[in-house]
Design a protein around this nucleic acid. Sequence first.
DNA 1: GTTAGCACTCTCCGGCCGAGAGTGCTGAAA
DNA 2: TTTCAGCACTCTCGGCCGGAGAGTGCTAAC
Lengths: 338, 338
Amino acid sequence: MENRKQAILRAVVHEFTTSAVPVGSQALHSRYFVNLSSATIRSELAELADLGYLTQPHTSAGRVPTDSGYRYFVDFLMDLEPIPDRVRAYIRDELQSAPADVEGMVERVAMTVAAVTQNASVASAPQGSQARIKHVDLVSLEPQEVLLILLLEGNLLRQQVVNTTEPATQADLTALTSGLNEALSGRASDEARRRYDGAPLGLEKELLGRVIAVLDLYEKGTENLVVHDGVRNLLRQPEFAESSRVHQVLEVLEETRYLTVLLRQLIGDSDLQIVIGSENTSSQLQGCAVVLTTYGPTDRLKGVLGVIGPTRMAYSQTVSRLQAVARGASDRMAELGV
Amino acid sequence: MENRKQAILRAVVHEFTTSAVPVGSQALHSRYFVNLSSATIRSELAELADLGYLTQPHTSAGRVPTDSGYRYFVDFLMDLEPIPDRVRAYIRDELQSAPADVEGMVERVAMTVAAVTQNASVASAPQGSQARIKHVDLVSLEPQEVLLILLLEGNLLRQQVVNTTEPATQADLTALTSGLNEALSGRASDEARRRYDGAPLGLEKELLGRVIAVLDLYEKGTENLVVHDGVRNLLRQPEFAESSRVHQVLEVLEETRYLTVLLRQLIGDSDLQIVIGSENTSSQLQGCAVVLTTYGPTDRLKGVLGVIGPTRMAYSQTVSRLQAVARGASDRMAELGV
DNA sequence: GTTAGCACTCTCCGGCCGAGAGTGCTGAAA
DNA sequence: TTTCAGCACTCTCGGCCGGAGAGTGCTAAC
């Protein structure tokens, strides 16, 4: 595409994302291309419309980017917007003061992304494909009730109350604990399975069974934490003036099970994924754009972090800020060993 | 107030909560009071309006309850709606399948309340005024890095990474653990403080300091978990058709710090609290009603559970279902020892 | 290739009007 | 004294109309 056409497409996208009003040839002439007459711009606009990058709400309205228009912009025209110092400092402060556990960190990350992008955000907890045990602990609650505490890689704590068939004192459990730790800590989940198969009937086997159950739950990811925040930001946009639009987005965000699948599906292998309007498979997200990246303390432990907003979104700002938060969060989590 | 006036007020509230349309004398005559002419009903309505319990959107519209009207209904006219078996079963299933930790349970409880009341819900984690330690555990991460795990009453796990001034092996830590457990488990937080004051300088004092820090955080409630769900249910109501109304409510719900204060303020001492429209101190909740109750595994550990919806809410249904979930959750949490 | 000029189209907004819903009042009946 | 039929009145809502304004596409000249 010729340079000038690209420049005009870029201008239309920029103008429309800030004003939310269809942009006409006159506005482009006075604000972007003073030495180009509106008539010339008009004919370029007509061609861009023929190419499918622009459309008009009605005959006598200005132009609006189509989904393909945004796509072209994102793929070829967008350059990342630098992040102001104030925003950078805000991100750093929020991440520094975040709780030192995964849950708290994920929530803080979602909150921060929502705040700096002024859109809705989603975040899933970093997770590896196989769980690794760091530490096991057993606490006697009642004579026949044991609280099993598992510390997984990423300082993830899991707990489960186990009703044992035989009574056990705290001393019994403490003895058992050191054996279990020796065998399991630093090992992946299949070690626990192996040991379970080999163990004789009794308390230890019983407990190992529950250890495996917890690991299974984690690995299947059915209990994977997904949070969202910043829906109120969407409501400031004219796209969401009728609340039925908000309703559709909320259906996706509040249905955690669905959201988990969606994120996993979308992120694929790339490190930055932008899905625009009709490219969304889910019907509720028509008219919305989703920007996703990954984050996590190590290469093996990765979660998804994303922004959801109207297709008329400040993509370059969103991407740079999203990535800044993702990098910051990854560093902070690595630092905390979370 | 005469019986008949009460009956008419009750009918107006009932009709308006289901239809969302101002109710006229004709509708009341044909659907509730067949042997009372619409003229008679009309004069009663006029008197109820004089008393401040009803109002009209405009001269030729039907009547709508005022906030005082709802207040009168709630205080004197409402009888709890029985809960259908289907709903009862749903509540039971959701609570049975909830995760066995506080965070998971709180989220599930909020989700269930939102689902069965078809409104937005809020829930705060049950919390006592003083923390009690059930168990302490220390895990060596690096030579000079220790993960401190605290199990509090309610099977609440807290963790913190501690950078120690001197290196310590896991064996050192294990030895220290048993001493700490002997001294602290089953004790309230002031015991930890006492012990900290008496301890000689060294690893133990260092760790005790962090234990106290964690307990402080918990007791000050600054980190108290508050979740919400079901905002999408509100969007089905005509009151929230313009999204600015939703925006106001979301500002309250998504601002966790604010929400915590609000809940604590509202719940006071009573076990059921209903706040209607202008009774709300916060301006964002004008036009909304909040129904709150408490729940928790023991008398000492109580959280707040609530419903937020339009003032035009099915109060009797909301109250009975909210209380059912609160009771169910309390029982389940007691059972799990959470 | 660019541009001024111009006719054309479509939305938006305010005003107008009739239909419909619901009220309050009045006077008669129970 | 209470109830109720009848009736005039008020107000909203939806459709319709027309003018203003914005922006376009086309054409002819530079």
